[in-house]
Design a protein around this nucleic acid. Structure first.
Length: 262
DNA sequence: ATGGTCGGGTGCCGA
């Protein structure tokens, strides 16, 4: 049974709701992973989303961050924090077990910190967050499940994933320390679904609002769907839908999707 | 060109 899974950094669910609902209606993804809700949990537009046939698990906070999981299938259990740092209460991680006609699927929506500038305190927090994510994903791999951990990783994996790799080398989202930590996650056995399916394709998932970056296609591929070995074996299709990025009042990220035949 | 444009929330911060 083909299951369509999408990840999308919406950059404020409340200001994006019309476009998000239109995209959900047009594309009918079965599971959707949101980042950057920018609203508190109780302010999530549950009614409007549930009306489309989704169950919702959300973890928000005031002003910043915020992640959610939408599923047309029952959500069995959910955790709302990334283990490994009890002092970190930022709403950057949510993970659910989803039951698809008797089969178990585990998905997570992750919003990796942007990191501001290399060397800054926020950059160190980003690197530590990626290490925490690796430790958790390593544990999850032991379950040998169909597992997809997707979201805004805020790291472009390789030179092909940024519009000017020479100029951008060493800058935020394309720094060797970030790539090393993302690669450490991939080396656990995760597959970057889009890249595995489209080895040569230069396509981005994020474009800066400033300086006409989208119009000039000056972007980065920082929104990733990472599949466990069992999930990777079931992927039949994937892509990045740039159309919503061209719309009025667009998020600066495009949705990235895949199909898993469970 | 070391800028620029967004959203949140009400002064700037984060991206």
């Amino acid at each position: 049974m083909p299951i369509k899974i999408a990840t999308w950094n919406v950059n404020s669910i409340k200001s994006r709701l019309g476009g998000v609902i239109a995209w959900l209606k047009e594309n009918s993804p079965d599971i959707v992973l949101f980042q950057e809700l920018k609203c508190e949990t109780q302010a999530f537009p549950y009614l409007e989303i549930e009306e489309l046939g989704y169950n919702v698990a959300a973890q928000g906070q005031k002003t910043y961050n915020g992640v959610a999981i939408l599923s047309k299938f029952p959500i069995e259990e959910t955790i709302k924090i990334l283990p490994g740092d009890a002092a970190d209460d930022a709403a950057r991680y949510i993970e659910s077990v989803i039951s698809v006609s008797g089969q178990i699927l585990r998905v997570a929506s992750v919003y990796v910190p942007n990191g501001q500038q290399p060397g800054s305190e926020k950059f160190i927090y980003k690197l530590k967050f990626l290490e925490r994510l690796k430790a958790h994903e390593q544990k999850l791999l032991e379950y040998d499940e169909v597992l997809i951990i997707a979201g805004d990783y805020n790291v472009a994996p390789s030179a092909i994933d940024v519009f000017d790799p020479i100029r951008l080398e060493g800058t935020t989202c394309f720094h060797p320390e970030e790539r090393a930590r993302l690669n450490a996650i991939l080396h656990l056995g995760f597959t970057d679904i889009f890249r595995a399916q489209h080895p040569e394709k230069k396509q981005y998932s994020w474009w800066d609002y400033r300086a006409g970056a989208f119009q000039q296609n000056q972007g980065m591929r920082i929104d990733l769907l990472l599949a466990s070995p069992r999930a990777a074996d079931l992927v039949t299709d994937s892509g990045i839908d740039e159309r919503p990025r061209a719309a009025e009042k667009a998020s600066d990220h495009a949705p990235v999707w895949c199909v898993v035949d469970v």
